[in-house]
Design a protein around this nucleic acid. Structure first.
Length: 112
DNA sequence: TTATTGACGGGTA
DNA sequence: GTACCCGCCAATA
């Protein structure tokens, strides 16, 4: 049988899928949870590959500033914001409002 | 093969 | 509070 090793990307997608509605996480939080820590950029690459997946709410993944850094990758520049608003989040100026309140850290909430 | 870029983060000036 | 620099890992040119 072919190798069935879980890639770093699949691990990222798995965490993103577990992000509850109305919450959001950051690239660094996911990277740290996976153990890479400083490799937040790899999470971004994983998101880029996540385009082929149906259940990866990448809109809930933003940078540590709460800014919709990847909004440009959703086909439309406002698609990511609309998705977040549909999740019950408040978005203003391409940034999540009260991000510290909706922040969901897998290393704290998931790794329990 | 090496060099540059990339949906980032954190520290220092 | 803002600006700049370095670090991480992988993919692309």
């Amino acid at each position: 049988m072919p190798n069935r090793e879980v890639s770093f990307f699949e691990n990222v997608w798995d965490v993103v899928r577990q992000v509850p509605k109305g919450r959001a996480t950051t690239y660094g939080a996911i990277a740290k949870y996976l153990g890479s820590g400083l490799s937040a950029r790899m999470v971004g690459w994983a998101m880029n590959a996540a385009h082929a997946l149906p259940d990866v709410p990448a809109q809930r993944v933003v940078n540590r500033n709460g800014m919709l850094s990847g909004k440009a990758h959703f086909g439309s520049p406002t698609r990511m914001q609309e998705l977040l608003v549909a999740d019950g989040l408040a978005v203003a100026d391409d940034t999540i409002v009260d991000f510290t309140k909706v922040f969901w850290d897998p290393a704290t909430e998931l790794a329990l």
